[in-house]
């Protein structure tokens, strides 16, 4: 394990750790509010996983300043011209990535990545074409942000329904411990 690999995957491991903590709370604890808290932690960790995947080194938030946007409009003609020529090497590079034997050592994959970089560099001059790039600025992928934005809001909606069910259960049973509720049900 190289240090490069360690720092490249460190985020994922922390996310997996958080996910498992949430999972542990859900399956080990009998208190219903604690279960909802566990689910919340799980949800945040999933959100972090997606956001981590969308990040590009040296990128910035996908908000394009109007000044840069205007510049881009001027270059519009050039970009549409460059797009097809840039596409083929990038596709070749990804194909090369795929054909690498997965059982093989890591440096093969690294080589493929380097190849991808070189090819894309050749295609567009000084910019990496695979990354969304406008007017010399690299932008982080906005798609994971959008997906997670909606996930968070749906998450709070379902949490609210779960909590309101807990309130009703505690009113009828006088407790929110799962095993006690189960006992009460069996006695009836």
């Amino acid at each position: 394990m190289s240090s490069d690999q360690f720092f490249g995957l460190y985020n994922y491991w922390i996310v997996v750790f958080l996910m498992m903590t949430g999972f542990y709370i859900v399956i080990a604890r009998k208190n219903m509010i604690k279960t909802v808290i566990g689910l919340n932690i799980f949800q945040v960790s999933v959100v972090l996983l997606y956001i981590t995947m969308g990040k590009v080194t040296g990128g910035t938030a996908p908000v394009i300043p109007p000044a840069l946007a205007g510049q881009h409009d001027a270059h519009d003609q050039h970009d549409t011209h460059a797009a097809p020529s840039g596409h083929t090497p990038a596709a070749n590079a990804t194909a090369a990535n795929e054909t690498v034997d997965h059982g093989h050592a890591d440096h093969v994959t690294e080589l493929a990545h380097e190849l991808a970089h070189e090819l894309t560099h050749d295609a567009t001059g000084d910019a990496i074409h695979g990354v969304t790039e406008t007017a010399g600025v690299i932008y982080t992928n906005p798609l994971p942000s959008v997906l997670m934005l909606t996930a968070i809001v749906v998450g709070i909606a379902t949490t609210a329904v779960a909590l309101s069910l807990i309130v009703r259960i505690s009113e009828d049973y006088g407790t929110i411990e799962e095993d006690e509720i189960l006992q009460m049900d069996r006695r009836q």
């Binding site: 809001v153 909606a157 609210a160 909590l163 309101s164 309130v167 009113e171």
Partner: peptide
């Protein structure tokens, strides 16, 4: 919708 739903949830919890 979001404003109304969140406010309504608050009303229901607080009303209890």
């Amino acid at each position: 919708t979001v404003t109304a739903v969140m406010t309504m949830i608050f009303y229901c919890f607080a009303g209890r």
